[in-house]
Design a binder for these strands. Structure first.
Lengths: 155, 155
DNA sequence: CCCATTTCCATGCGTTTGCATGTAGACAAG
DNA sequence: CTTGTCTACATGCAAACGCATGGAAATGGG
């Protein structure tokens, strides 16, 4: 039971740190040409040169599928991304950065990286950062294949 | 510069872990009698027996001031909290749990604690949890007096 | 005391989100 | 080929959110 309490304390500390950091970053993003959420999509796509399907984006971004669908729709209207069908699976929608989207991601990304170096890098030593990363990775890895074990029990 | 890269990697790992965990928790909260955001307010208030002002709540909860204002308004309409003025500062609005709110916080909190023990406690050893907590605390502490994060603790 | 500034919360309004549902293609069995 | 089920997105709609702003009270000189 002491273990459970330790887990709760760790989660609460983690959530509070995340809240404080997010607040700071969101402030940085005010006055930026894209919102933090849009940047999140741009960044994710920048790591997928061949594009990504909506369902893959959705795994990385904390939005429901319909919300992400519309967010990408707006981003296409703004010329940040391009949507096209996948010949091998005609249900899929493949999203790809436009040149404009890639350029904005790079530009905003530079300032965001500086903010991370400041707010995160400025708070912990390099060794602590590495430890934090390792623990976060382990924590995330443990969440996989655990998503929806909610069996529908309705006669 | 290598330090900056380490900070970026740590932040990305942290954000991804948070996303995965939040997804799981939000799923747990489907079918619950309150949403996760409402629970967040209930939990924060459960730690402030003498009530909390909106601005203090806002320091802990990732919402803009107007959004939190309306969330609390809805929660009052649902009988979860009670709002009253502060005689020592007539601009302030003090929010307090109702008996119903406290009861629901306890009930939902028990299940949520079990989920934390499962998802977080199940992923790391007790020593790792303690390390994670220490790093998260340090990270959060470093954000104060920077963006606009002031932590006020109930006396 | 007075006026300017700041703090704390509420409200109008357009935008975004989530839930429920719809549509179309993939996939498997008969 | 047909039928049923599953998967991937899209869409209607009400609820919730953020931004800009407003009003009232506290605060800080002059």
């Amino acid at each position: 039971m002491a273990r459970n309490r330790t887990a709760e304390e760790a989660w609460e500390a983690l959530a509070r740190a995340q809240t404080a950091l997010m607040r700071g970053f969101q402030e940085d993003f005010r006055g930026e040409e894209v919102s933090m959420r849009v940047y999140d999509v741009l960044y994710t796509l920048s790591r997928c040169p061949s594009g990504a399907r909506l369902r893959d984006l959705n795994a990385h971004i904390l939005l429901t599928q319909p919300s992400l669908s519309r967010l990408v729709e707006r981003m296409e209207a703004d010329g940040l991304v391009h949507r096209c069908g996948d010949p091998t699976d005609r249900r899929a929608t493949v999203v790809r950065l436009t040149e404009r989207g890639r350029e904005i991601q790079r530009r905003v990304g530079r300032r965001h990286a500086a903010a991370i170096a400041d707010r995160v890098g400025g708070a912990l030593s390099e060794e602590e950062l590495a430890t934090l990363r390792a623990l976060a990775d382990k924590l995330r890895a443990a969440q996989e294949g655990r998503g929806s074990v909610s069996m529908t029990v309705d006669p």
